[in-house]
Design a protein around this nucleic acid. Structure first.
Lengths: 342, 342
DNA sequence: TGGATTTATTGAAACGGTTCAACTCCTATG
DNA sequence: CATAGGAGTTGAACCGTTTCAATAAATCCA
């Protein structure tokens, strides 16, 4: 195994010079640079990450903890498709900046915190990406207190200031309502994400704003608390369709939830996009494949991944200690929505 | 930042003893053990991974390189849902054994090899998981030559022996053919995965064996080379349905491919599961949600992840230098298949 | 021409663990 | 009673980098 000493002696320089070359080639005279370069190639030398980070206290690694429930082996639903896309974004941007991603599993929130403590304590990562932010999220104060660089995907209600990237869920919902209203819909139902999540609050604001801007009446029967799952979409839709005056359009918490809604509608012999319009949220790649294809509010997951990683790197480097960005979602119109039947 | 020295001096022992405690508490006398334990808790001490691995040459990290094409931002199709499930398995088993997962991105195969070289050379990982094995896979000899522990997900045609976990794709296809044959189907078409992949070869063997065991005639028109994509399923199915004597059942390369096939069938006013039966491969969670729900050959991705990680750990520890296991897929019967119309 | 400044290089001291030969007590054994 | 063996502990060397004060050589400026 070649070390910096081998390179140094074979190139006829000191290890300090090789180290300089490694960290900033400009510091080394052109001829020396060339010699070292050649030897590194010849020996196929890679500086050992452990030695490097022991001294420099940098790891070039970004941590990400994923909660995986051990009970059901099929828990990862297609909504995680979004996670994968986000991961692709994180990975790409990380690679571009010379970072790798360290992914650790935790069984639950408690274990998650312990994993953060371990990752930080053992100095395995330079920073963390924190996902699935809750309205009150204990991870935020925990990480701020430890003073470790992190960026959260999502805002929370914490009064404290922290770096985040978020999607403007409110605007997404408002856009969808305007679009439906333009198609003539007035009875627009809304299956919300579960209480407690920050995005639920945001989207709710968007819902209220949407119906206000479109001068639609507020109908508490048309709002059902649901979840991201297909099952939730199905159950909630049945509830809505059982109303004396059922809605003509349903906004859902996620694309998966929308698929459930579509199934409920179809099971009653109604046609999606004609009798009832359905709008999803996320724009996972299946939205386009479903039959009928799904009109949905598109979250740019890959871009979110980019943004998260870029922000984190700027926090680590100190360039920008408090990056906060909010991305706007787009409404992607497909076949699951249509003009209201007169 | 607390170090082993702080713990040692505050507990009134030498650093060697603390190190012993860290690596094997049995080596330390019970009272000493207790003292050290307390101090570690008091200081919330975590041994630094860098220092540890510098000397011990172990990282407790497993590497995984993922190829991400930068061009299209929506490349990660739902088939990757399988990848995510596998990742969950890897992560869980890794965590149970005190390992973390280091995930790196590469733009293409060439960069992938370079990333392997870097990860190994810089001593960042104890072993590697290698995915998407090809019939001739340059990564295998590369890694064997480097003498780094790895386990591949899939067999290849390399004459050399290496550790792997694989799914018995042949048996899956054979099972599906027997099932369809029992339903009365004799005209069974097959959309194969792309040439070059090892699984294509294996499944092909399974196809041949299936039609032989069921005494079905071989019909070269019924075999179409396709891909895993929905598009491929759509195009290939149209080809098949245009035949003078179209098949009554279609085996596909993946669930996504099957969705494409279903769409093609539906677009011709035919009913899936009645006029034409469709069988997928993978059993991604969407298979169950689609309408009609998809009969498919189920790959136990989570379990594959477990198996891969367990095997890798046994390679690393030297317990078993050459674990090779083949998991059997199951046929999951849903609504996309039915008795042939007489 | 001589001192000041810049450029390039050096060597040794960290960084925070692990490892292992050596040492000290005890206890068991013949 | 002498000795061997085991259990528990110690301290120093070492892992492969980075860092930085010190030095040497080259260049600049008055």
């Amino acid at each position: 195994m070649t070390t910096i000493r081998d390179i140094a002696s074979s190139a006829g320089v000191s290890i300090g010079t090789v180290s300089n070359y490694l960290n900033d080639p400009e510091l080394v005279a052109p001829e020396t640079r060339k010699k070292i370069q050649e030897k590194i190639k010849e020996y196929n030398y890679h500086p050992k990450a452990a030695a490097r980070s022991l001294k420099s206290r940098q790891t070039q690694r970004i941590g990400l903890v994923r909660i995986i429930s051990p009970e059901d082996y099929r828990s990862t639903d297609p909504g995680d498709n979004a996670f994968l896309e986000l991961l692709a974004g994180l990975n790409t941007m990380a690679a571009e900046n010379g970072y790798d991603l360290l992914i650790s599993a935790a069984k639950n929130n408690e274990e998650e915190l312990k994993t953060y403590a371990r990752l930080i304590g053992s100095g395995q990562v330079d920073g963390l990406i924190v996902m699935g932010i809750q309205r009150k999220d204990e991870r935020l104060p925990f990480l701020m207190e430890k003073n470790i660089p992190f960026v959260a995907y999502g805002r929370s209600e914490t009064e404290a200031n922290y770096p985040f990237v978020d999607v403007n869920g409110a605007e997404g919902i408002t856009k969808a309502i305007k679009y439906l209203s333009d198609l003539g819909h007035t009875k627009i139902a809304y299956i919300t994400p579960p209480e407690g999540l920050m995005c639920t609050q945001q989207r709710w604001d968007g819902y209220l704003q949407g119906i206000e801007e479109c001068n639609l009446p507020f109908h508490s029967d048309y709002v059902v608390e649901g979840a991201f799952s297909q099952r939730s979409g199905q159950i909630s839709s049945h509830l809505l369709l059982d109303l004396p005056e059922p809605p003509t359009a349903i906004l859902t918490a996620s694309d998966i939830c929308a698929f459930g809604a579509m199934r409920a509608i179809q099971s009653r012999g109604l046609e999606v996009g004609k009798d009832i319009s359905v709008v999803g949220f996320d724009d996972i790649s299946l939205a386009d494949m479903f039959h009928p294809s799904l009109t949905t509010i598109s979250q740019p997951f890959r871009k979110i991944g980019f943004e998260l990683m870029q922000s984190l790197i700027s926090v680590i480097s100190g360039d920008n200690p408090m990056p906060q960005s909010i991305l706007n979602p787009d409404l992607v119109v497909r076949r699951s929505t249509g003009r209201v039947l007169s």
